[in-house]
Structure formats: C-alpha cells, structure tokens
C-alpha cells in the first residue's frame, strides 16, 4: 500500500527549479528517509505536501487523498527545520494551542504524554524563548506528534538534539510506525539515521537519483558504506 505518491513534481522559484520532475513513492507504515544536499528540494517537497508551497506541475497523493488538502492535514504531523513555536508562550501553552487546532481529543492527557515522552516536565511552564535550541526542537517535535498523525513529516528533526534524545526519538518513531501505524518521512544529513530508515531516496537538484533499502542502494554503486554510496550518487547526479 502506498501512503505517498508523487509523479513529475515541478516547482520553480523564479529561475531556480527546486523540484524538477520528482517522482517519489512512500509505502504505508514505513520510515522513509529523504537524503540530499542543501537546496536539493527535500523541504520543498514536504512543503508542497502540506500546501505551504504550490506545485507548478505534477500529481501528488497522500493517505489516499489528493494533496494538499485541509482534510489531509488532520492526519499529518509536521516538524519544520526551524522551531516554529510561539516564543513568548510557555511550552505547555504551545502544545495546547496546536492541539486545539488539530482537535485532539482528551487534550490534557495528550499533552502530558508528549511532555513525558520528550522529557519536558521541568520546562513545561517556561517560555519557549528561554529554552536552548535543542530544547526548542524537542517542543517542536512534540507539536508534530501531539495529534498522533498517520503521516509524520520531519524536516531534519534531530539537528541540535543530544544523542540520548536522538536515540529515544528513533525508538519512538519505530514504535509509532508499529503501534499507531504511522508512516514517517524524514529528511536528514546523518547517515547513521539514514541507515535506520526502512527505505531511503537520494535527491539532487529536485530529482530522485535512486530509491530503495539503504543496503540495496549502497550495493548498487558497489559499496557497503552508505556514506560512500551517497557521495557517489551525488557526484554522479551532478
């Protein structure tokens, strides 16, 4: 079953082509890693799924619906690269606010669960602006997870997060795919994270270079090392 399917996606910003005929396929209940250098089109793809940017061309479907749509957004969680939080509101108030927008049932319980999962108990009453960058990213992740989405879009979620929390986050993501039957799209620069994904796609200049299981992609270019494989794909893509 396919959770996300994009065909011939094109998006230009003036003369720059952020997406140049991108084809992508993400299966239900998998963790899919979108790997590529800065400016390769990873964030633009996520934003087009959410309707933050408007595609020039192409067909995009997610969770059985044409994307983007407001209906779809109820089942999608999004963590952008920036914390994207209300800095002059407390951690708890940010979670409650976004929870209300998503119409989370039993919101108090859901907020408690997220605060405990992300180890934010001591910071819950603090203003977001007083938190460290890493801590702000935890809260941002909390906002994305709060309504237990079916599709989770994480744009470089582990940048600035300490290794312990990173490990816990991955455990949580793995659990989410099993228990909540969530599908996860993650963009990352970390190859150790790419290895943890069920499938990955190497993207370059808005085009998909190759998709598959991490070990398959490495083997295709005659190596066992994913980092080496990534470099070979990107150089070949240029």
């Amino acid at each position: 079953m396919t959770a996300v399917i994009g065909r011939g996606l094109v998006k230009s910003y003036g003369r720059v082509r952020a997406l140049d005929g991108l084809d992508i396929r993400i299966e239900y209940n998998e963790i899919y890693g979108l790997i590529g250098p800065n400016g390769s089109g990873k964030s633009t793809f996520i934003k087009s799924l959410l309707g933050i940017v408007k595609l020039d061309k192409g067909e995009l479907f997610a969770l059985g619906r044409r994307a983007p749509s407001k209906q779809l957004l109820r089942d999608v969680g999004y963590m952008p690269q920036e914390p994207a939080l209300y800095s002059n509101m407390s951690v708890e108030d940010n979670l409650v606010f976004f929870g209300k927008l998503y119409g989370v049932p039993r919101l108090r319980e859901a907020v408690e669960e997220i605060i405990s999962l992300l180890r934010l108990e001591e910071k819950r009453k603090e203003l977001v602006e007083s938190l460290s960058g890493g801590m702000q990213r935890r809260v941002s992740l909390g906002v994305a997870l709060l309504h237990k989405p079916k599709l989770l879009l994480l744009d470089e979620p582990t940048v600035g997060i300490d290794p312990l929390l990173r490990a816990e986050l991955w455990d949580y993501l793995r659990r989410a795919t099993k228990e909540m039957e969530a599908t996860i799209l993650i963009t990352t620069h970390y190859m150790d994270e790419a290895r943890r994904c069920d499938r990955i796609g190497f993207i370059m200049n808005g085009r998909m270079l190759s998709e598959g299981r991490p070990e398959e992609l490495a083997r295709k270019v005659g190596t066992e090392d994913l980092e080496e494989a990534y470099v070979r794909y990107v150089r070949g893509g240029k």
Partner: peptide, 9 residues
C-alpha cells in the same frame, strides 16, 4: 519565526 507556515500545516 515560521509559525505561520506551521499554521498552514
């Protein structure tokens, strides 16, 4: 602060 884009999402 990108909260507007988060609202859009």
């Amino acid at each position: 602060s990108h909260t507007l884009y988060r609202l859009y999402a």
